[in-house]
Design a protein around this nucleic acid. Structure first.
Lengths: 203, 203
DNA sequence: GGTGAACTGGACTCGCAGTACAGTAGGGAG
DNA sequence: CTCCCTACTGTACTGCGAGTCCAGTTCACC
């Protein structure tokens, strides 16, 4: 039982690293089993097919990402109780974290899945959808809390503003991947942060 | 000669539609030749391999996209000569255009390529990179023109702000694909537009 | 000593990319 | 009229990776 968990998460580790580096399709089961030092039969013992692997990876990734956001904004809240400043601090921490990630943030997993749609079954797609909707809800709530104190200078759709956090991160990561630069994602977050300052700052 | 061009662009049309719908990997040469009503041999006569197809698609797409931006902001300039208002009008036009596109904007092609990296050769990746750098330059110039007239309320990195146009579009398209909603990209652009209004509007 | 979970290993099918090449239809140049 | 070139068709082949099937092995624990 212990060995099962070991092997299973070892497969996920290796698969995740490879998928982040070169994409899901380009990651062969052959190389996963070579990396994990198991047989092909062993792989299919744990995962029915590549789809099941994708699903497990997404589930794990979303959990990690949610915890990351929880911790990040909990820390920010410790530093400043005001919701606006908490958000601004949280975004700064997020930007710093992205800069420190050498190979790039796993946020890619979401976009990667979105763009290789037909490779995955409905379960994987729905998982992806729910993750983004979860972030929308999370950030929307935070922005509404801010808006109660700081009247926004322009009226904005709060759902869309919540989505913008995910959108800016994903977009930044696309740029980063395509440009082969390193700070695009964190720069984009910092610009978004400036946006929030302008939007909510008292006149 | 005429037939060659016909067939070649017919292949590109069919491939592009399929790639936008389900991704590059999921698009088989089999189905392209079926759609274009040619033989497999005919396909390989025009394109050495799938990589060559990707390259041709990207080249064509980037050309179309650049022309689109040219036309869009030329039209915006006709409507208002002030650089800030021209930008705001242009973004509104872009948002409206994205809403009218039923199957989603081809912007996906850039992200799609970025996330399936290792499938493509250096030529394709560089093409992708240059396209984004081109947009950075384009929008950076526009923002600098605006900044000469309207002093920005916060100092921002102009390259990053230029990138933000591409980033917001790409990020919005990722959301749209993953959520299966329809207006995410245009909503994100409208939020970015609000950002610019706040950033450059006189105090 | 028996049972079941966690594998190994090998043989097989299938779909798709890519290669090779022989043959052909049709238009233009001489 | 014929020659040649472009733009294909059609077939047959290799090779890779996913996924299936299954028989056999190891080891833990009841």
């Amino acid at each position: 039982m212990d060995q099962k968990l070991d092997t299973r998460s070892r497969i996920l580790d290796i698969a995740e690293a490879s998928v982040l580096e070169k994409g899901f399709e380009a990651t062969s089961i052959e190389e996963i089993v070579a990396g994990a030092e198991i047989s092909r039969g062993g792989f299919f013992y744990h995962f029915k097919d590549k789809n099941a692997l994708a699903r497990a990876m997404l589930e794990r990734y979303i959990e990690v990402e949610n915890k990351l956001y929880d911790d990040l904004f909990a820390r920010a809240r410790e530093l400043n109780d005001d919701p606006l400043h908490c958000m601004l601090i949280g975004l700064k921490l997020l930007a710093e974290m992205l800069e420190e990630m050498p190979t790039g943030h796993p946020g890619c997993v979401i976009a990667s899945t979105a763009y290789q749609d037909r490779l995955f079954d409905e379960g994987v797609r729905e998982l992806n959808r729910q993750a983004i909707l979860g972030w929308r809800k999370r950030f929307r709530a935070m922005f509404e809390e801010i808006a109660e104190i700081y009247k926004p200078r322009e009226t904005v759709n709060m759902d869309a503003l919540g989505d913008m956090v995910s959108g800016v991160v994903e977009g930044g990561l696309v740029l980063q991947r395509a440009l082969r630069e390193h700070n695009n994602a964190s720069e984009q977050i910092m610009l978004f942060r400036t946006y929030l300052k302008l939007l909510f700052a008292p006149k």
